[in-house]
Design a protein around this nucleic acid. Sequence first.
DNA 1: CCGGGCCCCTGGATGC
DNA 2: TGCATCCAGGGGCCCG
Length: 315
Amino acid sequence: MPAVAGRASGGGGTTGRHEGNGAGLGSLAGVPELPEVESVRRQLVPRLTGRRIVAVWWDPHPHARFHAVERLVGRRIDAVGRRGKFLVCPLGGGTEDADLELVLHLGMTGSLRVGATCPDGTDPDAGLSHVRARLDLDDAHTLRFRDPRRFGRLSVVADRAYEQVVPTLAILGPEPLSAAFTVDGFAAGLAATRAPVKARLLDQRLVAGVGNIYADEILHRARLRPDRSADTLDRRRIVGLHDAVVGVLDEAIAAGGSTLGDAQYVDLMGKGGSYQEEHRVYGRAGERCSTCGVGWIRRSVTGGRGTHWCGVCQR
DNA sequence: CCGGGCCCCTGGATGC
DNA sequence: TGCATCCAGGGGCCCG
């Protein structure tokens, strides 16, 4: 296995460039999983709640993934919620009967900014690159959705009919940081499949919001090999894995996610996203394991995803 | 129904 | 220096 320059190969996505330019959220770089989306959500709440959308623009590019975005115009954002990696905003203020929601998935490279128009009418964010959608709000602010790789999705869904528009949201498992994520339910789901336990963590049905980076960190904390069959885990292992899911995600949210924010992001949060500094395995291939001090962090590729683990303390 | 593999996309890093 | 190739991984889709 070739040596990997671990930190440079990912490290939780620390590629945010300084683009601070006045009012607004800092851009959040990196692959957004539950902790990153939750951090974004918390920043958005005071800026979006109660705001009316007065105009909308979206990228006409054929690869852009938008659905019914035109229905946003005239609607009021009543709340900013989250399910797994999805931001879900109930919309009010319309004249039609349909119960509309704005559903946003950041994909791999999506990020959001909320910027104010200056009193002289100029827009400090006007020159931002890779803007795929823009929502003009009724308080002289604009929400911009940036997404270089176009894997993100922005949809308006009526009456929670997720099946056709956002199928993953329709089958999403319990929120890991809620009471709905029970050991019994988790155990039943794991016992039902011989798939590698990492695949089960990633597929969103057993538990919502875990992506590749946190799956590796969770399995390391639980001392489980990523390729271990899910149905071979005994109760003690399952409880440990459940605890690891909750513990890692909790700590990552507390750290502001695995991102490096620019100066503005730090200012708004009071602290920057720093969980990448706590990563024990992800992006650390070739380093000695900081948990056991004995093993070396290995890396393999399954399903096109990098997988990182310690050959000594994960069995 | 399942599990595995490959595809979408594009900027940055790497290789020649 | 410059061009080509590789790599990253959300979710979707297809195939055995």
